[in-house]
């Protein structure tokens, strides 16, 4: 039987978040939705890292994944800003918030 401690539980929740985000990224054409979906995928990964740092919950958490996650959050914010800017530009140039290949 699986021994489900707190760290493992949050890791599993992280994988589910990643899947939800990946589905949103693939299944829907609106660029804003894709950007949000990408962020949800990222949050899933961060959650797995933080849960890995927590480990079994005994002793101090591992600071290295924490540092990776804070770096990841900053990079995610940057990427989101740039992606939003590009999406706005796509809307301004084509009049549509969706890419040509995705139009129904």
């Amino acid at each position: 039987m699986i021994d489900l401690d707190t760290g493992t539980f949050y890791m599993l929740v992280g994988t589910v978040l990643f899947g939800i985000g990946f589905y949103g990224l693939i299944a829907y054409p609106h660029l804003l939705r894709k950007i949000l979906a990408m962020n949800i995928m990222g949050i899933g990964v961060f959650m797995i890292f933080i849960a890995a740092a927590y480990g079994s919950g005994e002793g101090d958490p591992d600071p290295v994944p924490h540092a990776l996650v804070i770096t990841g959050i900053v990079v995610a914010v940057c990427a989101t800003g740039l992606a939003l800017s590009l999406a706005v530009q796509v809307q301004a140039l084509t009049g549509s918030p969706k890419l040509d290949a995705d139009k129904e």
Partner: peptide
């Protein structure tokens, strides 16, 4: 995606 999440969960549990 359900398959992917299942695979990832298995990977996470095997750490």
């Amino acid at each position: 995606m359900a398959l992917l999440v299942g695979g990832l969960a298995a990977a996470v549990l095997s750490i």
